[in-house]
């Protein structure tokens, strides 16, 4: 065993709450560096693996998307409990993003508008117990759990993500400076 010679692989978990997956796509936009990264990290629960629940002792959790339903809260708390570092990954996680535009509307009315006739004669809002309860608003991640780092951008660029990860992997405090710090 040459384990002590090799530094332990960083264990990363990623999730998308109420996001569009664009932040995950931007992560894949590190292109060939993904194969390099695979040698240094291990993926835990993530949409790209088949691990359904995050295991204990993850080093890093990347959370895309705001919090829009009870299940999102549950998943987010599980990640927070198991990851040393939790990152609000992208605009939606940082401040709710575009889905938070529903926040000035009443969620009940939104539902009945989508699942009802214009004359208001009837509704058929899906209500099966398998469907998680919607929250009144879409919340940024830091209103539900403590967040260690915020990576803004819709999505953060691949280079921004790479800089962040390589800083962490080499033991530096991640620092995203001007040219990589974008909000669009």
């Amino acid at each position: 065993m040459n384990a002590p010679m090799n530094p332990r692989k960083l264990r990363i978990t990623t999730t998308s709450l109420s996001g569009c997956f664009g932040c995950h796509m931007s992560f894949l936009d590190i292109d060939e560096r993904l194969l390099e990264l695979a040698a240094l990290v291990e993926f835990d629960r993530s949409p790209i693996t088949d691990i359904k629940h995050c295991s204990q002792h993850c080093d890093l959790a990347l959370v895309e998307g705001g919090v829009c339903n009870a299940e999102n809260v549950h998943v987010l708390r599980e990640l927070r409990a198991n990851a040393k570092i939790l990152v609000a990954f992208g605009a939606c996680a940082v401040n709710g993003g575009l889905p938070a535009q529903r926040n000035h509307l009443d969620v009940g009315q939104c539902l009945s508008q989508v699942y009802r006739t214009p004359d208001g004669s009837a509704t058929a809002i899906p209500d099966d117990p398998e469907l998680p309860l919607l929250l009144d608003k879409v919340y940024p991640v830091n209103e539900v759990v403590r967040v260690d780092y915020f990576l803004p951008g819709c999505p953060p660029s691949a280079d921004t993500i790479w800089k962040f990860l390589t800083d962490l992997l080499t033991g530096r405090t991640p620092r995203i400076e001007h040219p990589l710090l974008k909000f669009d």
């Binding site: 109420s18 469907l131 998680p132």
Partner: peptide
């Protein structure tokens, strides 16, 4: 089961039309 609800069609109402192509693409990354 599709377990989430985002109601995009509802909150897009009232927005100016020229904004729509760049906002709706946030449906899907």
């Amino acid at each position: 089961h599709i377990v989430e609800f985002r109601g995009f069609e509802v909150f897009i109402e009232g927005r100016p039309y020229w904004e729509v192509p760049v906002t709706v693409q946030r449906l899907c990354g």
